[in-house]
């Protein structure tokens, strides 16, 4: 199978300390993968690396040509300025940015797409409401509507279901399943192992490096989960430098 994202000996980090350490492996095109692991295991960092926001300290990360320029990302809610007085409609319409840029007009088709996205996340009638007045679950629906509008082939979700009510989680999981069925490649950082077992065919258990990576049933064994908890290593100020190979 073709790979969507191929990591070769990838090291990502901050201040020369690795958050993802010598990771090798690939995410297949059209796969639906959960990335899990203890806190500080490098899950969010890996997504940032895939987005190209963080240059690798070592190794390479390769995105398939067919996916270049069509990557969507769901940020953690704390990264948003929720106080900003923007309406639900405008926030979802942001998803058209790649097509319309700063000055082109939105046009009728974009209008319909925004409408359809709002319908699919169950936010009809909320168009004029300001995003700041919504609950956490509704706000997450807005961000999913924006992802629907973006219509990307590779979708990265950073803790999409953290602190969200069960009904919203079910609705949004259905959208993730639909993306998978349409052949889009989806990566989601998650913590709920039951959820991963039920809904995500592939799993990467990350503890800076891949502790296990493959089909979910084979990854999430009881021994591994217990092992992963104690593997959460600490930031060592005096850690020696890795031998850097020339690539």
């Amino acid at each position: 199978m073709n790979s969507a994202i191929a990591c070769r000996n990838l090291t990502l980090g901050y201040d020369r300390h690795p958050a993802v350490h010598h990771l090798s492996g690939s995410f297949a095109l059209g796969s639906l993968t959960a990335i899990t692991g203890p806190n500080g295991a490098g899950k969010s960092t890996l997504l940032k690396g895939i987005l190209g926001l963080l240059p690798p300290l070592g190794g390479t990360i390769k995105i398939a040509d067919s996916l270049q320029g069509t990557i969507s990302y769901l940020p953690q809610q704390t990264d948003l300025e929720a106080d900003f007085p923007i309406s639900v409609w405008d926030a979802v319409t942001m998803g058209h940015w790649r097509r319309v840029g700063a000055w082109r007009s939105l046009g009728r088709e974009s209008h319909l797409q925004t409408q359809e996205a709002l319908r699919r996340v169950g936010l009809q009638g909320f168009e004029r409401r300001s995003v700041g007045s919504l609950s956490g679950g509704q706000r997450q629906r807005v961000l999913f509507a924006r992802l629907l509008v973006e219509d990307a082939a590779l979708i990265l979700l950073d803790e999409p279901f953290a602190a969200i009510d069960q009904r919203t989680v079910n609705d949004l999981l259905a959208i993730v399943q639909a993306w998978h069925a349409q052949g889009r490649t989806v990566l989601a950082v998650l913590h709920d192992l039951e959820q991963i077992r039920h809904h995500f065919p592939q799993c990467l258990y990350l503890v800076r490096h891949a502790l296990a990576w493959g089909e979910t049933d084979k990854v999430l064994t009881p021994e591994l989960v217990a092992h992963g908890r104690v593997m959460s290593e600490s930031w060592d100020e005096s850690a020696p430098y890795c031998f850097v190979e020339s690539s």
Binding site: P75, E81, W97, R98
Partner: peptide
């Protein structure tokens, strides 16, 4: 337009290749 997007979701424009 970009200013409003950037004010609501700082980082969105950068992630979208601008």
């Amino acid at each position: 337009r970009p200013l409003i997007i950037d004010s609501f979701d700082p980082g969105y424009l950068q992630r979208s290749g601008s």
